[in-house]
Simulated assay, not measured.
Amino acid sequence: MKNLNINNQNHLNNTDLSHAPRMLRLKVVMDLTALGSTTIYDMLDKKSKRYDPTFPIQVKLSKGRVAWVESEVVKWLETKIAARAH
């Protein structure tokens, strides 16, 4: 088992992860957007008055665990900033 862990670590060391999508937990999305969890989930709910089809959809990673793609959240924020009245 120890050899397997060493092999996995060597593989990670030799893998270029610079292009790997960074996944964000809800708390980080909340911090970045200044939105609460209820607002975020309302923005994803087509039945909600606060529904926003432009808000990034979360990725289901496993049962009970979701995350957002960082680049999609950043792009959404940049769109909001660009759309503000000057």
Rank of each mutant, 00 (worst) to 15 (best):
M1Y: 02
M1N: 08
K2N: 09
K2Y: 09
K2C: 04
K2M: 07
N3T: 08
N3E: 15
N3P: 04
L4E: 14
L4D: 08
I6L: 10
I6Y: 11
N7F: 12
N8C: 05
Q9C: 06
N10L: 15
H11F: 09
H11K: 15
H11L: 11
H11M: 06
L12M: 14
N13Y: 11
N14F: 08
N14Y: 10
T15N: 08
T15V: 02
T15W: 15
D16K: 06
L17S: 14
S18N: 14
S18V: 05
H19E: 12
A20M: 12
A20L: 13
A20K: 13
P21E: 15
R22D: 03
M23C: 06
M23Y: 13
L24I: 08
R25W: 06
R25T: 07
L26A: 14
V28G: 02
V29Y: 03
D31G: 03
L32F: 05
L32N: 11
L32I: 07
L32V: 01
T33K: 01
T33H: 01
T33M: 00
T33N: 02
L35P: 04
S37A: 07
T38C: 03
T38S: 05
T39F: 00
T39C: 03
I40D: 00
I40A: 04
I40R: 03
Y41R: 13
Y41F: 11
Y41C: 02
M43C: 01
M43D: 02
M43R: 13
M43F: 00
M43N: 02
D45I: 03
D45S: 09
D45Y: 07
K46G: 03
K46F: 09
K49T: 10
R50N: 14
R50T: 05
Y51T: 06
Y51V: 09
T54I: 01
F55Q: 00
P56C: 04
I57P: 00
I57A: 06
I57C: 03
I57K: 12
Q58F: 06
V59H: 08
V59I: 12
L61F: 07
S62H: 12
K63I: 05
K63S: 12
G64Y: 11
R65L: 04
R65C: 04
V66S: 10
A67E: 11
W68H: 10
W68V: 03
W68L: 03
E70N: 13
E70K: 15
V73N: 05
V73C: 05
V74G: 00
K75H: 08
K75W: 01
L77I: 15
L77P: 01
E78L: 05
E78V: 02
E78P: 00
T79N: 12
T79Q: 15
I81N: 06
I81V: 14
A85C: 05
A85F: 01
H86T: 10
H86S: 10
